[in-house]
Design a protein around this nucleic acid. Structure first.
Length: 923
DNA sequence: GCAAGGTC
């Protein structure tokens, strides 16, 4: 490589950051022949220059080792295009761009120019990833300016350990232009898309609406970026999911048994059923034959493994979960600890340790800690048997090891609480990684009551092992009494309990990081920045539980683009760019080819978005008042008061006409209160009258004079109608069922409107409690329009099976819902005594059908097909009392055994002893 | 005044 001995050459070495320059210099200068490590100032106070002698392939070198701080250069538009009003934003798709060194990096650039002039070789020690390769070429450009004859080399290393570093410098390679090209592509696309959309939507919307969050001091920017927008998309999408959730009632049977040893709680193996009739039939059978028989007792040892070594994202997620610390704060603190030498480099994707890492030494350093020192000692004691080589999480960025402690500390005087917490997490996580898994004894007891299976389990920890040091995790601790196979007992309680399906929770910071990680949004070093940007831009807020909700602004922007049919707020665009970048770095696609095609597509998208800017206006109209500064004449009326809001009980509900012509009655307390009643889509005019509804309470509820579009309502309805939104108005309810509402229904992703239509969030549930009629109306409409595919297909399959004629007299038939087997059983209830029915044996399947309905082909077999029966019964008043086949609504049941069994009456829901008829008599 | 990516 070099030309043998002789006069020493001079080599300029450049690392990505000062700490690496120092660390590598330290390693390479350990040999006495280095002449020792000298350090001198460069022009930048942060980037020192280290000097020592070193031999590469037997050629002597005088080494100068300095650093940059990340990218030396930035991409920007040429001056003519820099000012926001200097050009049409669409011009930014082909405006000339240039790379330049920003002011705060010019001293580093000068150092490089000066040092390069004195050297023959340039050795690049940038991080071994695509960004590092790009920075390498930025360094090369600066150095070549003063020395065209430099011999340019790249050192490839993945960890700051002696062997690796010596190996890298002895086997230098050339820098990889393709890797750098991929980053150039990303930079240019990000800049052009980001700048064009940001300028466009900021200038379009900022002054057109009254943005109540805006303050004088702060210039409002409605930014768009290929990472920040998909991040916002995750937040909005979950929010919409919650809004559109339709609570569905389900039923489950629970059994408990008290013995001298304690209480066992058995859960039903079927889980829960949505079919009320089916659940009550089975429940009745259990109550009438309540003897439980133990059918299986299993004792198993189960390990619980410690976590993988710690990557950046895991550190952020766990700090958020354990300490409620934001990812941004976590990274700030971790950076401090890294700078002070207490932990390793905190930006790493790697979650497995190299075999060369000296794990024992790291543990040894922690032996003196007052809290976890004794655990570290046990780990090192071979007789304790606690040590276990860490697992591999399967990720390796080839640049940095997993985050681990690098220096012992029992706490420094300058540390904040957060410093203590993050250091403790890093240390405990590391100690946990090199520990044996916890071992638990899991006991599972299965019982049979009247042919139904129930199961209870308990876990006792046999050996805590890593859990001793990893105080953030807990496990087990539930005991159950001893049971033997074949043992029989009478349950202490046997209850039929109802529940309601819940919407998913808002996204936590850990959830959001996972979404971004899975979709490839951002890098481990930037994810927390994108999250923070959402907060800075007023696109999202974080509540006291560290969960994210979109703001009106965030939701409006996403809704606007969604209404245009663009998925700009979804991660697909970034994923596409990422795969193109990969192709460029592999050499399978040319840089110019990817740039041209991507920018062409994005430009077309931009032009189209601008043509459809009305969609953005409409979306903003839902949430904001128009400003007088622009389009003042389009400002909407506040609306007339219809009634006091029954949900927040503070603000008024007012009638409003949306820009798309549809009507709604919404709470003025929005966004704190999101109560809204959507009116039929066929309304052409609506005016609040002074007439007060005589039936709805709490009043006054002012009636509304409606005019409907003739062609959009059935012939037997009048176009003029004096209606009430309080819940008493059947005509209005029927028209909602028939015509739908003015809320969004076409998109696959439910928007704010649809969420309200389908009565979802907990807030709306309480709303509908005093507007019961609306709940019935909207759920019926949802069902009629087939919003539950599983439901309608189940119904269809059940009917077709019956039409084909099930064989008569057999004791089992195939389940038309899930395909498993349905056994013939006999009802024991007073009302249906002796009547036979088939019920599916599969766990979780609620299919059930009366035998006589199969034989007759009668329509009453709607009880089969699961959910449709429960939907029907709910319409008839919360399902209670309208039982199988519609035959009975007159009596409850009587226990045939005479045993005093506790439970809840399946008709009225009251607890009681069912040796007697329930006092409600089934009504 | 705009992006995302480095890092101080």
């Amino acid at each position: 490589m070099a030309g043998g001995g002789g006069r020493p050459l001079r080599a300029l070495n450049v690392a990505e950051k000062p700490s690496v320059a120092k660390a590598v210099s330290g390693i390479l200068s350990k040999n006495p022949s280095s002449g020792g490590l000298r350090v001198r100032e460069g022009r930048s106070r942060y980037n020192k220059i280290f000097e020592f002698n070193y031999a590469i392939q037997n050629q002597q070198f005088q080494m100068s080792f300095t650093s940059v701080t990340g990218h030396l250069m930035e991409l920007e538009f040429e001056d003519r295009y820099r000012k926001w009003h200097s050009c049409d934003p669409v011009d930014l798709y082909h405006a000339p761009v240039r790379k330049h060194v920003p002011q705060d990096k010019s001293d580093i650039e000068k150092t490089l120019e000066e040092e390069a002039r004195k050297c023959q070789w340039l050795i690049l020690w940038l991080d071994c990833d695509r960004e590092g390769e790009n920075i390498a070429f930025e360094v090369v450009e600066a150095c070549l300016r003063t020395n065209r004859n430099l011999n340019i080399w790249r050192a490839r290393f993945s960890a700051l350990i002696d062997r690796e570093i010596h190996d890298a410098v002895q086997h230098l390679v050339r820098p990889n232009q393709l890797f750098a090209d991929a980053v150039d592509v990303r930079q240019e696309i990000d800049l052009r898309i980001g700048a064009s959309f940001t300028r466009f939507q900021t200038m379009l919307l900022k002054d057109a609406f009254v943005l109540d969050f805006a303050t004088e001091e702060r210039n409002v920017i409605l930014s768009y970026g290929p990472c920040q927008f998909p991040t916002l998309g995750f937040v909005v999408e979950r929010f919409w999911e919650i809004q559109s959730h339709e609570p569905e009632e389900f039923w489950t049977i629970n059994c408990t048994h008290n013995s001298e040893e304690g209480t066992a709680t058995f859960s039903w193996m079927r889980g829960h059923l949505f079919d009320y009739t089916c659940a009550t039939i089975i429940y009745e059978m259990c109550v009438l034959e309540p003897n439980a028989t133990v059918t299986n007792v299993r004792n198993q040892e189960k390990p619980r493994y410690p976590p993988h070594p710690l990557s950046t994202i895991e550190l952020e997620k766990r700090a958020s979960r354990y300490f409620r610390m934001s990812s941004e704060q976590t990274m700030k603190v971790a950076e401090d600890l890294y700078q002070a030498g207490f932990i390793s480099y905190p930006r790493t994707e790697t979650d497995s340790f190299s075999v060369r890492t000296d794990l024992h030494t790291i543990v040894q350093e922690q032996q003196g800690h007052p809290t976890w020192g004794s655990y570290a000692q046990r780990l090192l004691d071979p007789e304790a048997g606690l040590w276990r080589n860490p697992s591999s999480g399967g990720h390796d960025d080839k640049a940095h090891p997993p985050i681990h402690p690098t220096k012992f500390s029992a706490g420094e005087s300058g540390w904040s609480q957060d410093h203590h917490k993050v250091y403790e997490l890093v240390v405990r996580h590391f100690l946990a990684c090199v520990s044996q898994p916890a071992i638990g004894a899991v006991t599972t007891v299965d019982i049979d009551i009247a042919g139904e299976q129930f199961s209870a389990s308990g876990t006792v920890i046999l050996a805590k092992n890593y859990l001793d040091v990893y105080r953030f995790e807990t496990w087990g601790g539930s005991m159950i009494p001893t049971y033997n196979y074949g043992q029989q007992f009478t349950p202490t309680t046997l209850t039929l309990d109802s529940g309601v399906t819940r919407p998913p929770p808002l996204l936590s910071e850990a959830d959001l990081l996972s979404c971004m990680d899975n979709a490839g949004i951002g890098t481990d070093a930037t994810m927390h920045d994108h999250i923070k940007k959402l907060l800075d831009r007023f696109y999202a807020t974080k509540d006291s539980n560290m969960r994210f909700s979109p703001t009106k602004l965030g939701e409006a922007l996403v809704k606007g683009y969604d209404d245009m049919g663009y998925e700009l707020w979804k991660p697909n665009l970034r994923a596409m760019m990422e795969s193109d970048m990969k192709a460029v770095s592999m050499g399978t696609k040319r840089k110019s080819e990817v740039l041209d095609s991507c920018l062409q597509q994005m430009k077309a998208c931009f032009v189209d978005a601008r043509l459809n800017k009305e969609k953005l206006f409409e979306a903003m109209d839902v949430f904001f008042e128009r400003s007088n500064r622009a389009n003042g004449n389009e400002q909407q009326a506040i609306g007339e008061v219809v009634r006091k809001c029954g949900l927040c009980q503070e603000s008024d509900m007012v009638l409003r006409k949306k820009p798309d012509g549809n009507f709604m009655v919404g709470c003025l307390g929005y966004p704190q209160c999101r109560n809204v009643v959507w009116l039929p889509g066929s309304v052409s005019e609506a005016t609040v009258t002074t007439t007060i509804c005589s039936t709805c309470s709490p009043g006054p509820v002012y009636m509304i004079q409606f005019k409907f579009r003739r062609l959009e309502i059935p012939p037997n309805y009048n176009v003029d109608h004096l209606g009430c939104i309080g819940g008493c108005d059947d005509t209005l309810r029927q028209l909602v069922e028939i015509c739908g509402t003015g809320s969004r229904t076409t998109s696959s992703v439910p928007g704010r409107g649809q969420g309200h239509t389908s009565s979802s969030s907990s807030a709306q549930q309480s709303n509908y409690r005093d507007q019961g009629a609306w709940q019935t109306a909207s759920s019926a409409w949802q069902t009629a329009s087939g919003s539950h595919p599983s439901q309608s297909s189940r119904g269809r399959s059940a009917r077709s099976q019956r039409a084909g004629g099930a064989p008569d007299g057999e004791s089992s038939i195939p389940c038309t819902s899930c395909g498993a087997s349905c056994n013939l059983r006999t009802a024991n209830t007073e009302a249906n005594k002796g009547r036979k029915f088939y019920s599916c044996q599969a766990q979780g399947c609620s299919f059930f059908v009366w035998e006589d309905n199969i034989n007759s082909g009668g329509t009453a077999a709607r009880g089969g097909g699961g959910r449709s029966a429960s939907t029907t019964s709910r319409r008839g008043g919360r399902g209670r009392g309208s039982r199988g086949g519609g035959r009975t609504n007159d009596v409850a049941f009587v226990s045939a055994t005479g045993e005093p069994i506790s439970g809840r009456c399946f008709v009225c829901g009251e607890p009681g002893h069912f040796s007697n008829v329930c006092p409600c008599r089934g009504r």
